[in-house]
């Protein structure tokens, strides 16, 4: 062994060491990511319910899914979280970062204040917000509304307002992270770009549109992908803010992940849950690939 090692070239020795160090993460990647993915694919083609042995039933789970109105509702809910949540959170965090970047006074403190929600336990935060949404005299939002002379709102108990009410804390919690990333992106743009523009007499709006945003492209790309994946996988807020964690009322807030969870661990329909998991996986893959393509720099 020793002799074999000493006979290798420097390049080969480096490769040996690289593989030794890569072995552990590679093992975890295969055992915890790759294998379950393959196993899920297999389970999705069976009628497994934990008790009886797995019977191969072909694409039956996928056919059922295609004809299941709840699946389609849940599928659409998931995209609502993405299509509303992602743009709003990006615009908000950019605005905060853009103005915060120009503030010198207490900048660190303000940045920390935005970041704290990101560090807070999601479940605890969801429950506090659930509290905020309660009717008078408990919920602070309704108290404010009534004080201002408006009527009380049902929030989480309304089929039309519940999804938005859950999105609000979700956006709020992720804002700090996005602000910090945007700030880093803004800092990376050399000051002389702005000075050159000032000498040329370029207006603020043009500077933003023609210099800042194009140069922030990699930052924006990163945040769009990360935040899209985050919203597509939303679970904890919905689970903690709806009655019995069911994504109600009437499934109007139930996202795909929660549906999979309910199918698998309340109803024990493992095969069907696995089939929906595969759909989620393909959606995440597609969204990521499309966004990487669309925003790739030429």
């Amino acid at each position: 062994m020793r002799a074999w090692y000493h006979a290798r070239t420097v390049g080969q020795k480096q490769a040996v060491w690289a593989w030794i160090f890569l072995a552990l993460p590679l093992f975890f990647f295969i055992a915890i990511r790759l294998f379950p993915t393959g196993y899920t694919t297999y389970v999705s083609l069976t009628d497994w319910n934990l008790l009886r042995p797995k019977n191969f039933i072909g694409a039956a789970n996928y056919l059922r899914l295609w004809n299941d109105p709840i699946f389609w509702q849940v599928f659409w809910n998931t995209f609502k979280y993405l299509l509303i949540g992602m743009p709003i959170s990006l615009v908000l965090s950019f605005l905060v970062a853009y103005y915060l970047d120009q503030v010198r006074f207490l900048q660190g403190t303000i940045r920390a204040l935005y970041f704290i929600p990101f560090l807070t336990t999601a479940a605890a935060m969801a429950w506090v917000w659930r509290w905020f949404y309660q009717p008078v005299p408990i919920g602070i939002f309704n108290l404010i509304l009534v004080d201002l002379g408006f009527s009380q709102q049902p929030f989480l108990r309304s089929t039309s307002q519940a999804l938005g009410s859950i999105l609000a804390p979700a956006i709020w919690a992720g804002l700090g992270f996005q602000v910090v990333i945007f700030l880093a992106g803004l800092r990376a743009i050399p000051e002389t770009y702005y000075e050159a523009a000032r000498i040329d007499g370029v207006g603020r709006w043009t500077i933003l549109k023609e210099i800042t945003l194009p140069l922030l492209r990699p930052t924006i790309l990163f945040l769009v992908v990360v935040s899209s994946i985050g919203f597509l996988r939303i679970f904890d807020k919905v689970y903690n803010m709806t009655v019995d964690g069911k994504g109600g009322p009437l499934n109007t807030t139930r996202p795909l992940v929660l549906n999979i969870y309910q199918l698998a661990f309340t109803d024990y329909r493992m095969g069907y849950a696995a089939a929906q998991t595969m759909v989620l996986f393909l959606v995440l893959l597609a969204v990521t690939v499309v966004q990487l393509r669309a925003l790739r720099t030429k």
Partner: peptide
């Protein structure tokens, strides 16, 4: 303002 001074500037990092 710089733009009203009728000057042009070349920077070290080109900008």
């Amino acid at each position: 303002e710089p733009k009203d001074r009728n000057i042009a500037m070349v920077f070290q990092n080109y900008a």
